[in-house]
Design a protein around this nucleic acid. Structure first.
Length: 212
DNA sequence: TCTACGATTTACT
DNA sequence: GTAAATCGTAGAA
């Protein structure tokens, strides 16, 4: 009888994030998402990554937001959904960007997920060096993490509190305020003074962050 | 319709 | 450090 190996995974707290988590101020959600987990189910396979970097976009006042000025377009309408939905779009003709909506319906605010620390099990045969390098390449950037998790337009508007293929979990980790770095957002030079807002957040010292 | 360009990544000088 | 890849969409006409 296998009584010693009751796998410690059974002890890990796994609470799927619900509506009330997302229906909060965007800057708060962006910071609280650090240390949470993304779970992606592809057939029988499950990919998991810890969120280590985010950015907040707060339309209509934020010039960097696609919903600046309160405009609604075919691309950005998912931003107006209530918290916990997926806003995904293509940039530079080749990379998907995965965002989670926040706040109530009608408020076009969201959090861009910029980097994940991939959780890979069974890596006994791989040397630590090469596996670290490979893991950093998987999801160390908003385009790369979508490539890894196979996220595309089919997730547009998906409700992450109900989806069977993509959701977020709290696994009992808390990132202290002192461990959260606040920085300028990336790739939005067109946004005038809004590009200076310290609305990019990442876990201090984490190796999987996209850029320092 | 037509045109310009981007919430990035990668390769190369 | 600079530039190319690559295409759906926003905004103009």
């Amino acid at each position: 009888m296998e009584k010693t190996n009751k796998t410690k995974s059974q002890k890990i707290k796994r609470k799927k994030l619900q509506r009330d988590f997302f229906n909060q101020p965007t800057l708060k959600v962006a910071q609280e998402l650090l240390g949470k987990y993304i779970v992606r189910k592809i057939g029988s396979r499950i990919l998991t990554g810890k969120i280590v970097e985010t950015e907040a976009y707060i339309g209509p006042r934020d010039k960097a937001s696609h919903a600046f000025g309160g405009k609604v377009t075919a691309r950005n309408k998912a931003e107006y959904l209530e918290g916990g939905h997926c806003y995904i779009y293509l940039v530079y003709g080749m990379y998907w960007q995965f965002n989670v909506t926040t706040e109530r319906e009608g408020k076009p605010e969201c959090v861009l997920i910029r980097a994940l620390e991939p959780i890979i099990e069974n890596q006994k045969s791989v040397s630590k060096d090469s596996s670290d390098k490979e893991r950093r390449n998987l999801a160390g950037g908003p385009g790369k993490l979508c490539r890894w998790l196979k996220l595309d337009k089919s997730f547009y508007g998906e409700d992450l509190t109900k989806s069977e293929r993509l959701w977020l979990e709290d696994r009992g980790e808390t990132i202290k305020k002192s461990q959260i770095v606040k920085a300028k957002r990336i790739g939005i030079d067109y946004a005038r003074e809004w590009k200076e807002k310290p609305w990019r957040f990442y876990i201090k010292g984490n190796k999987f962050v996209s850029r320092y």
